[in-house]
């Protein structure tokens, strides 16, 4: 009797688990899939029930988004900025994170606090001071050389991306370095390797899982970022999310939802594909950042 009751409770519990999991999965899959479906709908279909399936495959939406809204150029810009920013970030953050994690020296505490404090600085409200700063610098340069080049420059944008990602990246990398046993370094020193060589040959390769995580996280955040790009690139060299914002703004005066959803698909697709390819690494990587402080 008692056992039977326990059994049915157990069954109910299993049922609850699956219902809960499925509910969450559905609330995620359906809206995302819906955008994909809406992107191939014709204009008139947007005035019927949103749950109706599309009548055909209206690819013109994508052609319009690509041609009229310049999404091709924007995509190339986004790829360049993202790759460059990640490269700068790794070159700068890896040595710093390693040193902060493994060495105590005069000022190491202050440095650690400084980078931790950086975690609290919200990029959204320092964008304008950054812009004004670059502007002032441009004025000085213009006075000397006739033309400023800091604004509207994809390289500077990448540099700003890398800088604003430093606190989190260093935090994540140094947490990982802390977990590595010191025996490797000691062995390297015994072999006569210098500090640089030890770091570069032994320790950084060991941190590979966390480096992969850093690349993935920052790829997503740089790729999706729009406030900094909007402010620092006033010219036509826009990045993809800013391009999408423009596309959305353009739709306000043309009543063409199909194009808007096509634009959304263009922004989503690369991240989705990348995610499907590397999802294991990405979610594994999160173990590094969150759990071990």
């Amino acid at each position: 009797m008692k056992k039977q009751k326990k059994m049915s409770v157990e069954k109910l519990y299993r049922l609850f688990i699956y219902v809960a999991l499925l509910t969450l999965a559905i609330t995620i899959i359906i809206p995302v899939a819906w955008v994909f479906i809406a992107s191939i709908k014709e204009k008139s279909e947007f005035y019927t029930s949103p749950w109706d399936m599309p009548k055909g495959f209206y690819f013109q939406n994508f052609i319009d988004a690509f041609e009229k809204a310049n999404m091709g150029t924007y995509m190339l810009n986004s790829i360049m900025v993202t790759a460059l920013a990640i490269l700068i970030l790794l070159v700068v953050a890896l040595p710093a994170a390693y040193v902060l994690a493994r060495y105590t020296f005069k000022g190491s505490k202050i440095l650690n606090t400084l980078f931790k404090a950086g975690l609290f600085i919200n990029v959204n409200y320092i964008v304008v001071p950054i812009f004004l700063m670059l502007l002032d610098a441009d004025m000085v340069i213009r006075g000397r050389f006739g033309d400023g080049f800091l604004l509207d420059n994809l390289f500077v944008l990448a540099l700003v991306y890398a800088s604003t990602a430093l606190p989190f990246t260093i935090y994540l990398l140094s947490s990982y370095f802390q977990t590595l046993p010191s025996t490797y370094e000691e062995a390297a020193w015994v072999d006569g390797a210098g500090y640089f060589k030890t770091m570069y040959k032994i320790m950084i390769p060991m941190a590979r899982p966390s480096i992969v995580a850093v690349i993935l996280f920052n790829f997503l955040s740089f790729w999706n970022e729009y406030i900094i790009a909007l402010t620092l690139i006033p010219g036509p060299n826009k990045t993809l999310p800013v391009g999408l914002m423009n596309l959305m703004a353009a739709q306000k005066s043309a009543t063409n939802y199909g194009q808007m959803y096509a634009g959304m698909v263009l922004v989503m697709l690369p991240t989705l594909i990348l995610y499907i390819l590397v999802q294991k690494k990405l979610t594994q990587g999160m173990a590094l950042g969150g759990s071990k402080e």
Binding site: L84, D147, F149, N153, L154, F155, A158
Partner: peptide, 21 residues
């Protein structure tokens, strides 16, 4: 890949400067 991209960006920057001058 990233190095290739880097050089493209640098070239692009140079082009832009030249053009403006």
């Amino acid at each position: 890949g990233t190095i290739a991209l880097l050089s493209i960006v640098l070239m692009a920057c140079q082009d832009k400067d030249n053009a403006e001058v």
